[in-house]
Design a protein around this nucleic acid. Sequence first.
DNA 1: CAATAAGCGAGACGGTACGTCGTGTCTTCTT
DNA 2: AAGAAGACACGACGTACCGTCTCGCTTATTG
Lengths: 215, 215, 215, 215
Amino acid sequence: MSLWGADRYHVLMTPPEATKQRGRPRSEQSHQKVLEATARLLGSSSYDSISVERIAAEAGVGKQTIYRWWRNKAEVVLEAVLTGYVEMELVPMDDTGDLHQDLSAWMQGMLTEGFREEFIAMARSLMAAGLEGLPETAELIRQEHAWESGALMERLRRAAERDELRPGADIAAAASALIDPLLFRIVIGKPCAPAWGQALVDTVTSGIAADRPAR
Amino acid sequence: MSLWGADRYHVLMTPPEATKQRGRPRSEQSHQKVLEATARLLGSSSYDSISVERIAAEAGVGKQTIYRWWRNKAEVVLEAVLTGYVEMELVPMDDTGDLHQDLSAWMQGMLTEGFREEFIAMARSLMAAGLEGLPETAELIRQEHAWESGALMERLRRAAERDELRPGADIAAAASALIDPLLFRIVIGKPCAPAWGQALVDTVTSGIAADRPAR
Amino acid sequence: MSLWGADRYHVLMTPPEATKQRGRPRSEQSHQKVLEATARLLGSSSYDSISVERIAAEAGVGKQTIYRWWRNKAEVVLEAVLTGYVEMELVPMDDTGDLHQDLSAWMQGMLTEGFREEFIAMARSLMAAGLEGLPETAELIRQEHAWESGALMERLRRAAERDELRPGADIAAAASALIDPLLFRIVIGKPCAPAWGQALVDTVTSGIAADRPAR
Amino acid sequence: MSLWGADRYHVLMTPPEATKQRGRPRSEQSHQKVLEATARLLGSSSYDSISVERIAAEAGVGKQTIYRWWRNKAEVVLEAVLTGYVEMELVPMDDTGDLHQDLSAWMQGMLTEGFREEFIAMARSLMAAGLEGLPETAELIRQEHAWESGALMERLRRAAERDELRPGADIAAAASALIDPLLFRIVIGKPCAPAWGQALVDTVTSGIAADRPAR
DNA sequence: CAATAAGCGAGACGGTACGTCGTGTCTTCTT
DNA sequence: AAGAAGACACGACGTACCGTCTCGCTTATTG
């Protein structure tokens, strides 16, 4: 299942055109096999120790078939990661009515889930592919950085609707403040103690200032 | 000037040994020329479109001279970036006594400075080199991620000493919440509006919850 | 017009069967278009710089249509060359009754005609295709090497019938001695002076003539 | 031993320059290994079924090392063939004083030697490489077509000096008339009966001899 | 002051991967 | 059933880098 839930096929590929197509149609099976092989290899190797040739071999596919549909390795890896071929369990976001408690539980889950080897590998691959593919693939990684679209943003949105947030609170900023430090540490492999995550949740939910500045 | 101020030479290189050296000593001039050339190339090319060969040519240096002192391209780039061969102006952190105002001013400065082409290039190079050099260079990028060592942490520390922060506030978490989302966006090239930065500062300084949870 | 005069279709293709054919019959138009396109391309490119794909594109024909009727590029090229799609003017062989004079005139004609760019291209293509298609196409190029079947052999045969040749003279050997050195030089692109050709004719005719021509 | 006897290194490579050379010198061992590997492969495969990659692998050499010194496969093969890495025994040319007898013996030897599998392979490789490498390598194959430089021309020259040839006889033409038909048949794989070779010798010798041999 | 040692620029080396091209087969819709 | 279109598996091409190695040369310390 994808981190992003939705099918992201359209992000990389133009949707099937309405024009009557001539010639042999694209083999959807090959498409799948490539992404699966990529995901499999990413699980056991780093981004730049896998080659297009190995992906092709692993997928039982011709190299040209890869280059026919993707411009380079970065794009293949991005599609594999973004469309969820790299398996990943989402940390569930509860809604007990208590925002601080829900975020705390979620954060602890993320600290566990996010530092699983597979997630680290995936996050690094995403980052490496995004950086290498620049500037062509920049838009992709930008779009997909939108973790806010997930459960976290949703939970914050609900809190706002229930007037649990102070007026003017920016939920996108809050989501960023929660998730980006975590993601960063996952990518660079810096371990995070549970207390650190908790402090982050505390900070975002209640701020750090002794007296709230008047705005 | 380096982002980190201090000389980081020791991080990558064993310090000059006390033992009396035989043979021709290392040419400090070559050392400099390599780092300068690397910085120059990083300004106009991405991390993986520059090669050791190009660095050597640009520096007017033999390739072996590079490999004698660094293990691979990632290390050269890391040293060039970390020791400040990539020029960079630090955003000054004021201390007017008003934390929220000081952080706001600093954030707006960072939004300007951080999205300068050179800073983006440097940040991406750092990231790419760190990722590629794994696991050998992991420690480096982890250490250098410690932006807390800079002005931001210092300002927060002073605020804490003056009891401007609520009890139990975690300044490291706050610093992370402020800087990581910014850094992330710089690396992936996602533009940030001034309002977004402001919201981040607001969130961290005052939190988002309507009522502070009792802790 | 073909060097060999006759239609060589049968050499490569099984003759049209008598059996009642089911389905759409072979498009003779496509057949022609392929050979024409091949000849056209051979005029401007060398054998191995043209591809089946280019032939198909140039002919406006599907690639499979080519592979349905020929086994490989060598066969297509051989048929195109051998059936005379590569335009070629035969050097006429006179019969004035004077063998030495007739052969001399013919040789000078060949030296002119054979070193025309088109002939060179054709000869090289024939050679290259024959070599590449080995061993399948070996028989073809062997058969077609039989230049003896042409005007030269015919003229020699007539001379023999008129007792102009010394007893025991081998006209096939004489024909080979005349034409192979020429052909070889055409293929490898080694220029031949008129005097060289004349010397060849002199050598062979004094070797086979009943009475040595007075020179 | 080479068909041409002499070392042909200079034909393909610029001779070692007098200029003081910098950097690591060319590995003569690698040079040899490439040519040996090429010759070995040519013995068991046809010209275009061997690849540069296989040559490199067989030689235990990097592919770039081949491309550093030769422009393409054709040049490697040409050098391997022309410098005699493809083993070849020359047919000895006797000088009994009787030209017709000497040429007959030599021709019968050639018919045996030339149709040995190795010689056929070598001749075809030479031809294929020469054709493919056009026009760059054209000069090479032209030069090397100069079989006249060998024993045959030498024998004819001696005969001329002894006035065994008729006045005005062109020994180059005679040599061509003898060897090119043979070479052509070897290349295209057309078997030659001993009688055919004998007829060729008869034709040429009676053409050039001062006194016709009695037959 | 020679001998020894190690660094230097240069550039060839054995390799790995790249991205392109060509071959001959297969699969779609069209004629 | 054949044709045009074009995707497919395969594999060679020629290039670019990697990290190592060997040259002749230079610059130190040591004997």
